[in-house]
């Protein structure tokens, strides 16, 4: 879908992208980076609107330098900022944008009706956009990016300004853009948790350089760490401590750290469980002590931890 080869963009005083090489396949891809990491610059270059200082980029197999109009015909773009005139209805606006993408008038109207339905706008689409909630406006913005049935959409911070429910709905919608509509998505965000749930692949950039690019399952792969939570009993007023002692005696490695900040964190033990036999051992030990076993689960990595770890590695390098 997108391929860049040592892509650089330098402005007089800042380097926005620094020899960035990427290869992004079909599916939902998250582009993560702090503000100013080069995400928006990247999108501009991919749309063929801003020439790269050096290196090359291809979108859908077309060179961004020479085939800008062809790329923009097949790519949708949802900007981060407000872009909707308040005095027209969603239908009129999206029809107009569909025609701007080259769709004939009748097709533009049909596609608009379909697309607005798919993003969840029904009767309200005939009212002026000025009266819409933020969530509805975001849906209109998404609809105008999808109305010409692109092969790829570039979504710039689509969850900005949404409340938690609206955020979840938008993320679900983005997921459906790929699973149901078959349109590949490049979504930028500075919130890692969002991308973890939505994306197949995550690209982390910082200061215009590539920090990491791998599939979401790599990021969040299961670890060998096991979290065990137990109750207290009369015989063992501090159940966790008793279990810790018993398991340590049985030769199990127990991590010193606990899951900070979570309710009942003091009752959770993190231990190394290289194989099945540790699970049985934990179960038997807990039963032997007469404690209640609240939960026993494999811990998964969160993308944020990887990001943190990468940060720490990067710091001395600078």
């Amino acid at each position: 879908m997108i391929a860049t080869e040592s892509l650089s963009k330098r402005f007089p005083r800042v380097t926005a992208l620094d020899r960035l090489s990427l290869d992004i396949g079909p599916g939902v891809t998250g582009l993560v980076g702090a503000n100013g990491a080069g995400k928006s610059t990247m999108i501009k270059i991919l749309l063929g609107l801003s020439p790269a200082t050096e290196g090359s980029a291809q979108v859908l197999g077309l060179d961004v330098r020479t085939h800008g109009p062809e790329i923009r015909e097949r790519v949708g773009y949802m900007p981060e900022h407000d872009c909707l005139p308040p005095d027209v209805s969603a239908t009129e606006f999206v029809v107009h944008m569909a025609r701007m993408s080259g769709l004939p008038a009748t097709a533009a109207r049909e596609r608009t009706a379909d697309t607005l339905r798919h993003v969840g706008l029904y009767e309200e689409r005939y009212r002026p956009i000025g009266g819409y909630s933020t969530g509805m406006k975001q849906r209109v913005k998404l609809a105008q990016a999808l109305v010409h049935d692109p092969k790829l959409v570039l979504l710039d911070e689509p969850t900005n300004g949404l409340d938690p429910v609206g955020r979840d709905e938008m993320l679900g919608l983005i997921r459906r853009v790929w699973t149901d509509f078959g349109i590949s998505v490049l979504v930028t965000s500075h919130l890692l948790g969002e991308l973890e749930r939505t994306c197949d692949h995550v690209v982390v950039i910082d200061g215009g350089r590539l920090l990491r690019s791998s599939s979401t399952s790599d990021f969040t792969r299961t670890t060998t760490t096991l979290a065990v939570e137990v109750t207290d009993s009369d015989a063992h007023p501090d159940g966790a401590a008793s279990l810790r002692a018993a398991l340590a005696a049985a030769g199990v490695t127990i991590h010193a750290g606990v899951e900070d900040g979570l309710p009942g964190a003091g009752h959770v033990l993190l231990l190394e469980a290289p194989g099945e036999e540790t699970y049985d051992l934990v179960r038997d030990t807990v039963a032997g002590l007469g404690l209640g076993l609240v939960r026993m689960e494999q811990r998964r990595h969160h993308i944020a931890e990887v990001f943190k770890a990468t940060d720490q590695e990067e710091v001395p390098a600078r």
Partner: peptide, 18 residues
């Protein structure tokens, strides 16, 4: 002015027209 004020212009330029 409307296109500028409501920042619709970038949407136009994300489409085939220049």
């Amino acid at each position: 002015s409307r296109d500028l004020r409501f920042r619709t212009v970038p949407l136009y330029f994300s489409r085939p027209i220049e």
